[in-house]
């Protein structure tokens, strides 16, 4: 009987120890499950490569919570959204914020970020303006795709395609020319001062957009449609510029990787600016040729522009 008691005590101690250990482990792995009052925010993303359950969420760069749910949007849900950009969003993540995070303002922007090229991705929330209105309850934020290398590689074609689309449209309407010249023209001188320049681009594109809005309101019916198209494309340019800007302004630990990213951005900008040069040149000299279908421009190819160490004429003779 005495031996039974020893066995009993030993076995119970071991079992209790293991229960404590397993609970400790489960608690650590599961994170804090305490908060019933934890705030959650839903964010839609077009692509969440690198983001998974329990990924970190940062608010203005500081740890602010984690991802507690990830689900795919159905086609129906995607079609119900308002803009084309929103329709591209395919994944909805639910973010649980810590209690000490202040209420999110409505102008908060969400992107997928990473400290270095290799490190884990996280969902970044910008701080927003404190005097702005607070985010409505139940609002779904629009997230932008990853700001990492993958996203940057996409920037070039997007910009190029956008500008190429702008070209024929601009041929049709004289009114738009000035506006666009302002937008692009603002940006060009600043390309040399890289970071500031990029920032400037998106700022002035912003301004151009506002003016464009007014133009659309005033314009006659036939031109109106084209102007709306121009506006959409400008928005696209602005967004692309925006994500490049964000990537650049983020603190950097992996300088090598970042420089690589920079060179890609630069390459793309080089092509874009060269082509834009041709456009503005032609607009300034012979706008009529654009409107009344002149002969097709023989633009310098992308690879040629990239190879050259000096500024290249935009149009081949």
């Amino acid at each position: 009987m005495k031996k039974n008691l020893t066995d009993f005590v030993v076995a119970i101690i071991v079992i209790i120890c293991s229960i404590v250990l397993v609970l400790a482990l489960a608690f650590t792995l599961g994170g804090r499950r305490s908060g019933k009052n934890d705030r959650t925010v839903e964010i839609d993303f077009p692509d969440i490569t690198g983001i998974h359950l329990h990924s970190e969420v940062r608010y203005a760069g500081a740890p602010a919570g984690s991802i507690t749910a990830v689900r795919l949007l159905t086609f129906k849900e995607r079609l119900q959204t308002e803009t084309a950009v929103q329709q591209r969003n395919a994944v909805r993540v639910t973010v649980t914020l810590r209690p000490d995070v202040p209420p999110l303002p409505a102008d908060v922007r969400t992107t997928i970020g990473s400290d270095t090229l290799l490190s884990d991705k996280f969902v970044a929330l910008t701080a927003g303006m404190p005097d702005g209105p607070a985010l409505a309850a139940g609002a779904v934020l629009q997230g932008q795709g990853g700001g990492g290398l993958d996203a940057l590689l996409d920037l070039g074609p997007t910009l190029k395609a956008a500008i190429e689309e702008v070209l024929p449209l601009l041929k049709k309407t004289e009114v738009a020319i000035d506006t666009f010249k302002d937008g692009i023209g603002d940006a060009l001188p600043k390309v040399s001062q890289l970071v500031v320049g990029l920032k400037g681009t998106s700022d002035s594109a912003d301004a151009a957009l506002k003016r464009l809005d007014k133009l659309i309101d005033d314009a006659d019916e036939p031109i109106k449609e084209d102007l709306v198209q121009v506006k959409k494309l400008l928005i696209q340019i602005e967004q692309t510029m925006g994500s490049a800007d964000q990537l650049l302004s983020r603190t950097d630990r992996n300088l090598n990787g970042r420089l690589q990213e920079l060179s890609v951005v630069l390459d793309n900008l080089k092509v874009v600016s060269t082509h834009a040069k041709a456009l503005t040149q032609q607009l300034a000299e012979k706008p009529s040729r654009i409107i009344f279908s002149g002969k097709k421009q023989n633009l310098t190819s992308e690879s040629e522009i990239l190879k050259s160490k000096q500024p290249v004429p935009a149009v081949k003779p």
């Binding site: 031996k3 039974n4 066995d7 009993f8 030993v10 076995a11 119970i12 071991v14 079992i15």
Partner: peptide, 16 residues
Amino acid sequence: IGEVFRQMVAIGVRAL
């Protein structure tokens, strides 16, 4: 029950 605990020690605790 006592035998279960005896076996727990023999099978489990001793192998720990």
